[in-house]
Design a protein around this nucleic acid. Sequence first.
DNA 1: TTGAAAGCGCTAACAA
DNA 2: TTGTTAGCGCTTTCAA
Lengths: 336, 336
Amino acid sequence: MTSGRVTIADVARRAGVSTAAVSKVLRGAYGVSAEMQAKVTQAIDELGYRPHAAARALRGRTYTLGVMLSDTRNPFFPDIIEGVTGRLGDTEYQVLLGPGGIEPKTQARMTDAMIDRSMDGLILIAPVLTDAELAVIATATPVVVVGRHGGAVAYDAVVDDDVMGAGLVVDHLVGLGHTRIAHITHLERARAQGLPHMVRAEGYRQAMRAHGLADDVLATSFTEEGGFEGARELLARADRPTAIFAGADIAALGVLRAADEAGLSVPEDLSVAGYDNIGIASLKRVSLTSVDQDGQVIGATAASLLVERIEGRSRSVTSSVSPTLIVRGTTGPPRL
Amino acid sequence: MTSGRVTIADVARRAGVSTAAVSKVLRGAYGVSAEMQAKVTQAIDELGYRPHAAARALRGRTYTLGVMLSDTRNPFFPDIIEGVTGRLGDTEYQVLLGPGGIEPKTQARMTDAMIDRSMDGLILIAPVLTDAELAVIATATPVVVVGRHGGAVAYDAVVDDDVMGAGLVVDHLVGLGHTRIAHITHLERARAQGLPHMVRAEGYRQAMRAHGLADDVLATSFTEEGGFEGARELLARADRPTAIFAGADIAALGVLRAADEAGLSVPEDLSVAGYDNIGIASLKRVSLTSVDQDGQVIGATAASLLVERIEGRSRSVTSSVSPTLIVRGTTGPPRL
DNA sequence: TTGAAAGCGCTAACAA
DNA sequence: TTGTTAGCGCTTTCAA
């Protein structure tokens, strides 16, 4: 299979030059005449030559960037990936995605695998690794972490401003007249710090406090079932909330189901808001008020930072992307 | 960064043996004494040695399998990927995903990139490349194509039995008493043949014919909007269908919205069925009757076939996975 | 400006 | 059973 492969030597022979010359043209290195450039380029085209990445890796770069996905099911991954590939579209870099799973162990295995494959840099999306583990990875290769707040010293970071996002929701609900606003968050025995759901819960608390309201946080899980169970518990209370802010849209869908079953109409009896603005939130039948993270911008930013890192920047950068509130049909004034 | 890397030479020195010996232990090659095995293994552990994939690639395998994704947004990719990684879990192979985009050109670029990176084999999910292009790729590396019907000669294939799936839906609807059953399919100016939606439409036609019913196919697109537009057109007819079978769940969601807007209740006035059994289909609020493909099995099967190929099988295999009908709340007997 | 040649870390004959 | 050695295809000094 590799037998028939066109190598740099074939190109050199065809162009009547040395392999070193071809290599220089390939990398746009300094010190090549226009004539040489033309000869080599022509030979490359004629032969349909493509550099062998592994061979390059042994000396230089692989022009491969790895994106570790923590949970393939996460609905805004496609946006982030689109942002990354979009930004890298006209560069030489190729993007390869590594399904890291949701366990620290499998994620560590994946990052190791990516490093072993000499990737030029890594984008880690919402990794559950500890700051210490991340630091180790960052010493091996340039790293940009997406979706982890705080602790970026050896690597760059791109985060959604989750505090702001939670604040947008609370402000919106308070503006509508709500005072009993509950929040459903995700319960995790994670060793990792600064995970988005933690920051969203904190942002919710801060915003409630700013409005002089008592907070009410219930931790279940970011699943449809988790939202359902959480809402059922909240709605069974004597002084039930008039609005529920779920930390993730998928949980908000469960809240909607619980409202259905409790015979409460949305938004008249209960306002519901989510976070992430996943695709179905915009479906007319769902019409869920949600916070949009603009995954495309996040992905593009991460890609830019990574390339800068690879090309030499050593100072750490943390970029915060502002979310937007998308008001739809599930939120409205409380019934008086 | 690579400077500090532990190499096979370090291991050999530590264990007091040759690099060749280490290599043999690594690959479990024939002719290694237990003592040698132990010494080397210990040295590897002590040093935390991990083989450098690029260096291996130059001579042998990379232990990397590539999965080309044609559309990251496709909701059953996670299942397929889970199936693939699950099956490969205890092997040495690592899975890397390549976002190929929906254009033939970008997909070709991605497959080239994967070949250039010496991947040991490729799984292509619903590629829009022509049979000829696929054949070329298959000469370069072992290939398993998922979701393309027909034309597998140089490579293996795993397909959902879309004819059967469409038949299940039609049989179900006919069994409920429907006779005017329309089908919404995807319109594509694709060069590629045997795409799932084409086969589903054909399966629908066959099944209708088998029941002695007239078929009624409308081509819009597999989007929420496409389903909506299609349904609106179908429902505006004098002799409107009593059931609509959308070739994809996402389109079925649009059909549901159109029914809402037309003031038709589901399933009393209109039965709706989809295909793919995406996550939201099972949400209680949606409860969409759909055909389930078991992406996990598809992915696991593809992984098995690929490994077999890599390890020497040359005869082509096509594996057909039977879908199941998941009956939920959107289908019922027609109003008399 | 160009080319010769020495590796990068590993595998696979082949020899011992 | 173990070790020696010649590359794999490329990049990168260093000379010419």
